Simulated scan of single mutants.
Amino acid sequence: MSSSCDPRHAPAGDVNAALLVIDSRLKSIYDSRAGSDPEQQRLTEQFIASLGPTGVHDLIDGACTLVYIFMKWLRMAHEDHGKDVIEYVVPSLVAAMGKMPKSVSPEAIPTMAGLVIAAGTGLSPSLWRRQYGDWTKDEMNPLEATALLLAEHINRLTDDQDFATRLVTEALSSVEQDR
């Protein structure tokens, strides 16, 4: 029986734009010399503002696709070691978000945890979230933080600061070659 949240029915969104935002944030975190780069932050915000309403919806769907891809990879990696991805990823993700009160309000944490659990069980995060209404402005930073924290978690597991970005880039290249 097919679920209404089956990823085959979900819009992929603008994965490239979402990856650009996440990769930019990762690079600013990893570049200890630069610290927080206000210019990079301004450029990212300017880019997002230039998207318009349709582009923003595509960016949100793209971020959800990233969450799905990251959780799929994490699920396979954990299963290879006889571990449950939900048990090992969600608690640390929730704890990390709890330490980010300027970016992630406490009210958004359950939604982001649900989003990650949906992806971790093979459901589309976009379609899962859609069941509860439209995205709110207050959920945009938490969604970005969720994708960022998952990417950083993957990079730490692999001891490779570019692994998560490369994972998505290679998946996108593979899709393009199949067309």
Results as ranks from 00 to 15, higher is better:
residue 92 S to H: 07
residue 79 E to M: 04
residue 62 G to Y: 01
residue 177 Q to M: 15
residue 33 R to P: 08
residue 19 L to C: 03
residue 115 L to M: 15
residue 70 F to M: 13
residue 106 P to S: 12
residue 29 I to F: 12
residue 39 E to M: 09
residue 87 E to Y: 03
residue 54 T to L: 04
residue 170 E to I: 14
residue 158 T to I: 02
residue 106 P to N: 10
residue 23 D to G: 02
residue 75 R to M: 01
residue 170 E to L: 14
residue 86 I to H: 05
residue 92 S to E: 11
residue 163 F to C: 03
residue 49 A to Q: 06
residue 153 H to R: 13
residue 8 R to M: 15
residue 118 A to H: 08
residue 122 G to A: 14
residue 165 T to H: 03
residue 156 R to S: 13
residue 67 V to P: 01
residue 82 G to E: 02
residue 102 K to F: 14
residue 99 K to I: 04
residue 165 T to V: 05
residue 167 L to R: 00
residue 108 A to P: 01
residue 85 V to D: 00
residue 66 L to P: 08
residue 6 D to H: 04
residue 51 L to E: 01
residue 129 R to I: 14
residue 120 G to M: 06
residue 128 W to S: 09
residue 110 P to M: 11
residue 162 D to E: 13
residue 171 A to M: 03
residue 105 S to T: 15
residue 12 A to D: 07
residue 89 V to Y: 12
residue 42 R to I: 00
residue 57 H to S: 09
residue 45 E to S: 10
residue 157 L to I: 10
residue 32 S to A: 11
residue 60 I to N: 01
residue 7 P to R: 01
residue 42 R to K: 10
residue 151 A to I: 02
residue 168 V to T: 07
residue 123 L to T: 07
residue 78 H to Q: 05
residue 177 Q to S: 14
residue 20 L to T: 13
residue 144 E to F: 08
residue 170 E to H: 15
residue 80 D to G: 05
residue 115 L to A: 07
residue 173 S to L: 11
residue 102 K to R: 15
residue 25 R to C: 05
residue 104 V to L: 09
residue 168 V to R: 06
residue 39 E to S: 08
residue 118 A to G: 07
residue 134 D to A: 12
residue 21 V to T: 06
residue 15 V to T: 06
residue 140 M to P: 02
residue 101 P to Y: 13
residue 131 Q to N: 07
residue 98 G to W: 08
residue 101 P to H: 14
residue 18 A to R: 01
residue 129 R to Y: 13
residue 100 M to A: 12
residue 100 M to R: 13
residue 13 G to I: 04
residue 86 I to D: 11
residue 132 Y to A: 08
residue 104 V to R: 14
residue 47 F to D: 12
residue 127 L to I: 03
residue 160 D to Y: 14
residue 122 G to W: 12
residue 154 I to W: 07
residue 78 H to I: 03
residue 52 G to S: 10
residue 176 E to Y: 10
residue 135 W to G: 00
residue 120 G to T: 12
residue 117 I to G: 04
residue 131 Q to W: 10
residue 121 T to F: 03
residue 123 L to H: 13
residue 57 H to M: 09
residue 16 N to D: 11
residue 164 A to G: 14
residue 120 G to C: 10
residue 4 S to H: 06
residue 74 L to H: 14
residue 27 K to W: 10
residue 76 M to I: 09
residue 96 A to I: 01
residue 37 D to K: 06
residue 4 S to Q: 10
residue 128 W to I: 04
residue 21 V to D: 01
residue 106 P to A: 05
residue 47 F to K: 03
residue 156 R to W: 08
residue 162 D to K: 07
residue 109 I to S: 11
residue 124 S to C: 12
residue 65 T to K: 05
residue 31 D to I: 05
residue 128 W to P: 00
residue 80 D to P: 00
residue 65 T to M: 06
residue 162 D to F: 10
residue 24 S to L: 15
residue 50 S to H: 04
residue 139 E to W: 00
residue 41 Q to Y: 13
residue 155 N to H: 02
residue 68 Y to H: 02
residue 66 L to G: 12
residue 37 D to F: 00
residue 172 L to Y: 04
residue 77 A to I: 01
residue 19 L to M: 10
